[in-house]
């Protein structure tokens, strides 16, 4: 190849890649590297940075507060994931049959997915208002206890979980529905001809063949779940008295309320490591239970 042809080839590579590479370097790679740098300093965003080495990490890893916010984040995932998974799968199974108004139901269940988290959090904050919210009015009408929801330390996190599950149910439903439609009909018919009842067909055939979709939903939900922030910030602000504070909420507060940007950056890297670890474990473990057709 002549030098000229080589330059021309390089020119094309640059032409096609630069529009994405330049912004990714400027607005993702550079902040990423400087985030590591910030995490090794003590810094309140205003006065000069002070080098502290790994002290931020050491402080965070021994601070019981860190354990608390991770525990709350874990509790959020533990409440949210089973709700959206069971609900989304159930809905997908029902809507996979011929049913009058099926596309209407599908659209209705999906509407909250396109609504922003802030709106969902505000609407549910109002529905779960302890004194004059709709949910407590209805609970009172049938003689059930009326929790304080986001004003009660025991109920703040469940309130966030409920509204989040409401928003994402339709997302899981659509993924599972796509998975169900990819299951070859003849496999189910063969099982039926062999005398397998509905229950057996579900556990032995549908569920195993659905495992790629299940895997996708679990991986994505946990990645997003560990980064939960918007709905907590709007609904409870992490309160009352820190009872619903999550990791990203803590990162935000450390930076912009307490002026501890170094610690905040360190915490964001700890969170990143945790998410990476959980995802890696799942990807390794998938061989044992995910069946790709």
């Amino acid at each position: 190849m002549t030098a000229r042809a080589r330059w021309r080839k390089a020119g094309w590579v640059l032409f096609f890649l630069a529009p994405s590479a330049v912004p990714l370097v400027l607005f993702t790679a550079v902040p990423m590297v400087s985030s590591v740098w910030v995490s090794l300093h003590q810094w309140n965003l205003i006065s000069p940075m002070k080098w502290v080495g790994l002290d931020n990490y050491r402080t965070l890893l021994t601070d019981p507060g860190t354990r608390t916010v991770f525990l709350h984040t874990l509790m959020y995932c533990a409440g949210y994931l089973p709700l959206v998974f069971a609900g989304g799968l159930g809905l997908a199974l029902v809507l996979n049959r011929k049913l009058a108004g099926r596309s209407f139901f599908r659209a209705a269940y999906f509407l909250p997915v396109v609504t922003s988290w802030v709106v969902v959090a505000l609407v549910w904050k109002w529905l779960l208002n302890p004194t004059n919210g709709l949910v407590n009015t209805l609970l009172g009408a049938v003689g059930l206890p009326q929790p304080g929801w986001w004003t009660d330390p025991n109920w703040a996190l469940p309130a966030v979980i409920l509204s989040s599950a409401w928003k994402d149910l339709g997302f899981v439903m659509v993924i599972m529905l796509a998975g169900l439609q990819a299951i070859p009909q003849d496999v189910l018919e063969a099982a039926w001809a062999d005398g397998a009842n509905g229950w057996q067909r579900f556990w032995r055939i549908t569920l195993p063949l659905l495992s790629p979709s299940t895997f996708f939903v679990i991986v994505i939900s946990l990645i997003n779940g560990f980064q939960v922030f918007d709905q907590v910030y709007v609904m409870t602000g992490g309160g009352p008295s820190g009872s619903s504070q999550v990791v990203v909420g803590q990162i935000y507060d450390l930076t912009f309320r307490y002026g501890r940007a170094g610690e905040a950056s360190a915490l964001s890297w700890i969170l990143f490591a945790v998410i990476l670890l959980i995802t890696a474990v799942q990807i390794r473990g998938q061989r044992r239970w995910v069946h790709y057709a």
Binding site: F27, V30, P31, M32, Y252
Partner: peptide
């Protein structure tokens, strides 16, 4: 290698970037 670097940016969540991006 370049493609792997692209994918690496996918793994970094917004909250890691927020503070330095704000400074930038």
């Amino acid at each position: 290698v370049v493609f792997a670097l692209y994918l690496a940016t996918l793994m970094v969540p917004m909250q890691v970037l927020v503070v330095p991006l704000f400074i930038e």
